[in-house]
Design a protein around this nucleic acid. Structure first.
Lengths: 145, 145
DNA sequence: GGAATATTGTCAACTGGGAAACAAATATTT
DNA sequence: AAATATTTGTTTCCCAGTTGACAATATTCC
């Protein structure tokens, strides 16, 4: 008989594993969704960051606000710029490229927003409003580490 | 003035985004942790699946129980087999390779388990036991979709 | 002013996982 | 028994993202 280890997962582990599982599933669903628009969730995230900021920001600043490494930003911006959703601006500091959302980019956000919203509603529909709040709050505590 | 879209995220969206954020962070931390042992979380997961099953299972079955595509399993098993943590067995059905945990693999699990447990405790330490249960329960509801 | 240090954008090399295609073996249908 | 379909393992190619390095520019400190 083969050797085997007895493992009795704690609540902490079970919660952690489930959290990672659900997160993974959401990331995949999200990937699949954004691929319809020929982009990654990271691309879309850049657009949202720019829209949220309201003013042009540097690529490194984008990197800081994203779930992605700094070196990945130029590729993302390249792709978005090719599609006219974004443009690079010169700047007093000759090192930095400020990145700005174009009108086309804002239109794109506007058009795709309903889909993004309905996606979130779909994935969260098994929790009522209070439970969603509760989840949000619990997860917030995990972010402060 | 540049065009801009007004976005007021619903609770559902905020919860979803936070869930993905926390999940992502955990995946990265987990990656970093397993790299100490020169493997991926996927590799470790294979070991746990085999240990949990108690008997050899086919590669395709492993794929089904994992967060990874079927085509990725041979690579994972190759690596684990090279290190003697796992072995392939012939089988009545000449298509299938049954994969079994070796004694070395079980030893490895036993030795690394404390680290894995303490990692979970670390990441979840900002929630008390009841809150961990609550989180677990809420996430469970999201899995039934 | 000049030297050390930091920041920014960029690139090349690497990595892990995914998709599609394939042959071999088995199961199913006719 | 023959033909078709399905399952399994595997390989090849692809792709997004990471790491580490680099040059150019700014900043800080002496």
């Amino acid at each position: 008989m083969a050797k085997r280890v007895k493992i009795t997962p704690s609540i902490a582990e079970q919660a952690q594993i489930r959290l990672m599982r659900v997160g993974d599933r959401l990331w995949r669903a999200s990937d699949e969704r954004f691929s319809r628009w020929d982009m990654t969730d990271n691309h879309y995230n850049v657009l949202r960051i720019l829209n949220g900021s309201g003013e042009p920001i540097s690529q490194s600043e984008i990197g800081r606000r994203m779930l992605s490494s700094r070196a990945n930003v130029p590729k993302l911006v390249d792709h978005l710029e090719e599609r006219g959703l974004v443009k690079r601006l010169a700047c007093g500091d000759r090192r930095v490229n400020l990145v700005a959302l174009t009108d086309g980019g804002a239109d794109f956000l506007e058009q795709t927003l309903p889909d993004v919203i309905s996606f979130a509603n779909e994935t969260m529909k098994f929790l009522n409003r209070d439970e969603q709040k509760q989840l949000f709050k619990l997860l917030g505590r995990l972010l402060d580490s």
